[in-house]
Structures are given as structure tokens and as C-alpha cells.
């Protein structure tokens, strides 16, 4: 059993506007998938459905063997018993970090370990310190988020997500709020995680980075997957994909 994500026929509308239509893909354990596409194509909504911040309208999703929702007569029926379990298997890193401003860096990384996973203080802090060290932030443990640069804040938020030992980690444009210097920091961290075979799905506009780390790739536009496969970076078949990719070439 090496499949981490199996998504079939996902659809979602907000009121009258259809945002996702018939989205299907798989991610295997240890793989990195990149999700690219223009603004408004539904990338965030898709991640938010898998991480349970939004509800699916239709489709079937299995995460690491656990069914989260299943299509029945054109509607997604949620498997309530699995919601929490799937939630613990999925982590999400936000574009805007969303660190807890009133907690120190250390507490940002320990809070959920203690409250949700019921780890002891010692265990949670040891885990947090190890992750912070890995992010190059061991000397920042006692600081507060506002005292850190954007890149450091994003690394704390990655440590916070990793502390929960997710089976798959999703990134929604993790560098879009950062300038190029800080962007490199974050891409470096994600690349290191990929080398450790952390299963990840990354929404990004960093094409060179995406091409370098991806085992799978999807190009979305207007709520559908237009084209998939890592060839989309080098040899796109669809006109829309080609246009989108070439619009990034200047900053290669």
C-alpha cells in the first residue's frame, strides 16, 4: 500500500460559481507533486478541501487508506469516523504563515503536540527543538513571531506542521509573501524535505524549483486539470499550459 492520496472526480462550487470540476489525481508515498496554474484556477480550494477547511460537493478522496468522502448519487458523503484521523495525517503550510502571535516560537511548535497528540512537555519540546534546529532556528525558540523575518516565520510554520508527524504535507504558495532572498530559504527547506522522502504537494509559481523537485505535476486552469505529468515543465502539450509556462521563462 504505497498510495498516499487518491482523489477522484472532485467538484466544488461556491454558490453559483463552479470552482473545481472533476479533479482526479494520485500521489504515492514519498512523492512530491507540484500544482501550478493561474490565479483563480482553484488550487487553494483543492488543498483546502483535502485539509478539511472546505467541504467537497462531489468526489471520492482516500488519504493513506482512509476514506474521507465518497461520491454517492452525485454528492460527496463524508465518512465522519475518519475525519479526525485524516486530519492528523494531513498538514498545511499557509502562504501567510498564520503563526500564533501570542505564543513564542517554541510554543507555536509544541502547542498542538501537547493539546492534540497529548505528548509530554519534555517530548514536545525535544521534538520542537530538533525541528527548529533543522530549520536553522534553534536560537529563535524564545522569540515571538513578530521578531522574526518572513522567511524565519515561514520556517517556524513548517516546523509547526512537521511536529505533528503528518503523512503528507501541503504547501499553498509558501513563498508568495516573501522576497526572492527569503524565498530561496524556504525552497531550500522544502527541497531538503523532498530528499528525505517526505510526501508533499506544493502550489507554487516557482517553476524551476517545481521542475527540480517534482515527481508529479498538474496544471490547473478554470477549475479543471488541463494537463498533468512532469513533462508540462519541459514539453507541454496543451496550448494553455505552454502559454502559462512560457510566461515564467523570463525570470528563469
Amino acid at each position: 500500500m504505497s498510495r498516499m492520496i487518491e482523489l477522484r472526480g472532485l467538484s466544488k462550487s461556491f454558490g453559483e460559481t463552479s470552482v473545481l470540476r472533476d479533479i482526479s489525481f494520485d500521489i504515492d508515498k514519498g512523492e512530491v507533486m507540484s500544482i501550478i496554474g493561474p490565479s483563480g484556477s482553484g488550487k487553494s480550494t483543492m488543498l483546502r478541501i483535502i485539509t478539511q477547511l472546505e467541504k467537497a460537493d462531489d468526489g471520492t478522496l482516500t488519504v493513506d487508506g482512509d476514506r474521507l468522502f465518497e461520491s454517492h448519487d452525485g454528492a460527496a458523503v463524508y465518512n465522519k469516523a475518519n475525519e479526525r484521523r485524516v486530519g492528523l495525517k494531513t498538514g498545511l503550510v499557509f502562504q501567510s504563515f498564520n503563526l500564533f502571535p501570542h505564543f513564542s516560537v517554541l510554543r507555536n511548535v509544541t502547542e498542538a503536540q501537547r493539546a492534540v497528540l497529548k505528548r509530554s512537555r519534555d517530548e514536545a519540546e525535544a521534538k520542537a527543538m530538533a525541528l527548529l534546529a533543522k530549520m536553522g532556528l534553534e536560537d529563535k525558540a524564545k522569540m515571538y513571531p513578530w521578531q522574526l523575518s518572513g522567511g524565519q516565520q515561514q520556517r517556524v510554520s513548517i516546523a509547526r506542521a512537521l511536529a505533528m508527524d503528518p503523512a503528507i504535507l501541503f504547501f499553498d504558495e509558501p513563498t508568495s509573501a516573501l522576497d526572492p532572498e527569503l524565498t530561496r530559504e524556504i525552497l531550500h527547506v522544502i527541497r531538503a524535505l523532498a530528499e528525505e522522502k517526505m510526501t508533499m504537494a506544493v502550489v507554487t509559481h516557482e517553476m524551476n524549483f517545481a521542475r527540480a523537485i517534482s515527481d508529479r505535476a498538474v496544471f490547473m486552469d478554470g477549475g479543471v486539470i488541463v494537463e498533468e505529468g512532469v513533462e508540462i515543465f519541459t514539453d507541454p502539450k496543451e496550448e494553455r499550459t505552454r502559454k502559462f509556462i512560457s510566461s515564467f521563462e523570463s525570470d528563469g
Binding site: Q52, L53, G87, L92, N98, A112, A115, V116, R160
Partner: peptide, 23 residues
């Protein structure tokens, strides 16, 4: 309070009540 605070709490597995009182 930004909505992202609620969302971060939810994604980390906090209950709504926990997120409300602690975050």
C-alpha cells in the same frame, strides 16, 4: 483576528473550543 488563526488551529487538530479559548 485573521481567519487564518482559526484555520491554523483547525489544521493542527484543535477543537473549535480549544482554538477559541487558547488562540
Amino acid at each position: 483576528v485573521p481567519r487564518g488563526q482559526w484555520e491554523a488551529g483547525k489544521v493542527l487538530g484543535f477543537s473549535r473550543a480549544y482554538t477559541f479559548f487558547h488562540i
